[in-house]
Each structure stands twice: as structure tokens, then as C-alpha cells.
Nucleic acid binder design. Structure first.
Length: 281
DNA sequence: ATCCAGGCATGCA
DNA sequence: TGCATGCCTGGA
């Protein structure tokens, strides 16, 4: 048993349901979630508002992984203060209270966001689960059957046609290309954030939005403000006052101006709120 | 049924 | 640099 304690509220449900991650599942309406990290089974349980408990098969090995994954070192209270720039943002912070960003395993995260374009959460989830169930490792844990996400080596024998048959559609060629042309820069010890963003965008199938999501969710660059259709609708309605038809670039920059180094947190709080709590969008 | 999703590459001004 | 178009496919 591993206990993670926080000064602030930590909501497992908000964290796993906000839309940043796809393959953690609850069977009890949001108190307990099951998933995997690397080759380890993870059961996460909401103990109280400020602490969660993790069960796995090897606490000693998994402890550093969950600390990293659940971002236990984030200065969440400073983030909340910084992001509450007006009444609307105060409402959003209150509504989504306890939602934390995660630091996701990078290979799975990259596949997930390559699959995300013109798709939706249920479909992305089922695409990822198909990969896990067919090419990952099966783990029995706490009465549940869990599947690890496959490594690149586990998928290297597959090609575009295989991925098309899995229902990936035109995204199949991006997955195929990524797996067979895995770039060295992803494993560089030292990263320059701006350069890294360009390097990601140079990959086949990765544009500004997917690059920002990968860099935010799997590499932890919290200042990024990914702009998808939800963010466009939200920002046009509440903050963006330009007149351009397709102001993705300006809205991305506006997000960074408004929320600074916490723009990534702001984006995810807004995304969750826009999708689940604002019926006018 | 047509239309559109959590975008991107491509071709063209 | 900016904009239009096609892309797989499942769900409304």
C-alpha cells in the first residue's frame, strides 16, 4: 500500500475523467480506478479529499513511478491562485476542484494523441484498449484483468493495413510511420522546450495541437496551451476578441498570456469544464 | 440519412 | 503565411 498525501484537494475522479488519459477505469462510479504503469498493475483509491492510496504488486518499485505519474510535487495551490483571473475562472477552478494533471508514459501518450484527431474519447479509448488487449501483457490483479500498454517492440511487426483493420482509419499511417521511424530526440536527456515542440511537429501526423498535448501530458511542459475545437469554442465565447476566422495560433498565445507558466493546467481545467459543465458551448 | 468529430498533410495563392 | 480540401469511420 502506497499513500499519497496532498496539501490541496486531490480528486481521482476529476483527474481521470477530465479527458487527459484514456485507459484508467472505474467499476464503482469514481472512487477506485484501475490501470497500468509500465508492467505494473495500479489500483488507485480515493481515501479522503487530500489523500489517495495505491495498491500494486511491488510498492518499492512502483512508488517512484506513481509519484511521478500523479505529479505529487506540483504546487497546486499556487496554480489555483494564478489561474483564477476572474469570476469565470474562479467558477471553473471550483467546479473542477482537485483535478490534477498526470505525467503519462510517453509511448502510450503519443499513440493516444496520434489517434485523437477527429475522434472522440470512447473511440480513442477502444483503439488503445484493442492494442493493450492484443499486444500488451495480461495482468490479473485484485480480481480484475488488466493489460499493460504494448512497447514499440511489441508493435514493430504491424503495418498500416493492420492498423486500418483495427479501425484506426486514416490515422493508421501515422501510427505505422511513428513506430517504424521512432525519433532519437524523444529520449534525449536534455531538452530545449521550444526546439522539442518543433521536433515533435516535424513528425508525420503531428501538428501543433497534438505536439502540445504530448509535450504537456507526457513531458510535463506546463506552460503549453493546446487548442482544440473545445478550446476554440470556449475562448471565442469568453476571452478571444479578435476577428479572424481561424485564430488557433492567436488563441494558443492568448492562453499563455493569460495563464503564464500554468497555462497547461488552465487548459485542462477549461477543457473539462467546457465539455462536461458548460451546456452553452 | 447526411454530417461532423479532441487535426493534419497537401496543394495553392 | 494563410486558407481550402480530402481523409477513415462511428455515432447522431
Amino acid at each position: 500500500m502506497i499513500t499519497l498525501e496532498f496539501n490541496e484537494k486531490y480528486s481521482l475522479m476529476h483527474t481521470f475523467e477530465c479527458g487527459q488519459i484514456f485507459r484508467f477505469k472505474t467499476f464503482d462510479d469514481g472512487t477506485t480506478y484501475y490501470g497500468t504503469l509500465e508492467n505494473h498493475p495500479i489500483k488507485a483509491y480515493q481515501e479522503d479529499d487530500h489523500s489517495i492510496q495505491i495498491e500494486t504488486h511491488d510498492d518499492k518499485v512502483v512508488k517512484p513511478l506513481v509519484n511521478r505519474f500523479f505529479r505529487t510535487d506540483d504546487d497546486y495551490l499556487s496554480m489555483k491562485k494564478a489561474v483564477q483571473i476572474d469570476d469565470l475562472m474562479r467558477t471553473i477552478v471550483e467546479t473542477t476542484d482537485g483535478m490534477h494533471l498526470l505525467l503519462q508514459p510517453k509511448f502510450e501518450c503519443m499513440i493516444a494523441y496520434l489517434l485523437s484527431q477527429c475522434s472522440n474519447i470512447p473511440r480513442i479509448t477502444s483503439n488503445l484498449e484493442y492494442l493493450a488487449e492484443n499486444f500488451g501483457k495480461k495482468l490479473e490483479f485484485d480480481g480484475k484483468t488488466l493489460y499493460t500498454f504494448p512497447t514499440r517492440q511489441d508493435l514493430i511487426h504491424l503495418d498500416e493495413m493492420d492498423f486500418r483493420q483495427m479501425g484506426f482509419g486514416y490515422r493508421a499511417k501515422y501510427i505505422d510511420y511513428f513506430i517504424h521511424n521512432y525519433p532519437d530526440f524523444l529520449d534525449d536527456e536534455v531538452r530545449d522546450s521550444a526546439l522539442f515542440n518543433k521536433q515533435l511537429k516535424s513528425l508525420y501526423g503531428i501538428g501543433q495541437k497534438v505536439a502540445d498535448c504530448i509535450q504537456l501530458f507526457a513531458f510535463g511542459d506546463l506552460y503549453l496551451f493546446p487548442v482544440d475545437t473545445w478550446m476554440m469554442k470556449f475562448m471565442k465565447k469568453y476571452y478571444y476578441r479578435g476577428g479572424k476566422k481561424n485564430p488557433v495560433k492567436e488563441i494558443r498565445e492568448l492562453g499563455q498570456e493569460l495563464f503564464g507558466k500554468w497555462a497547461g493546467y488552465a487548459e485542462e481545467l477549461i477543457f473539462f469544464y467546457a465539455r462536461c459543465f458548460d451546456s452553452t458551448l
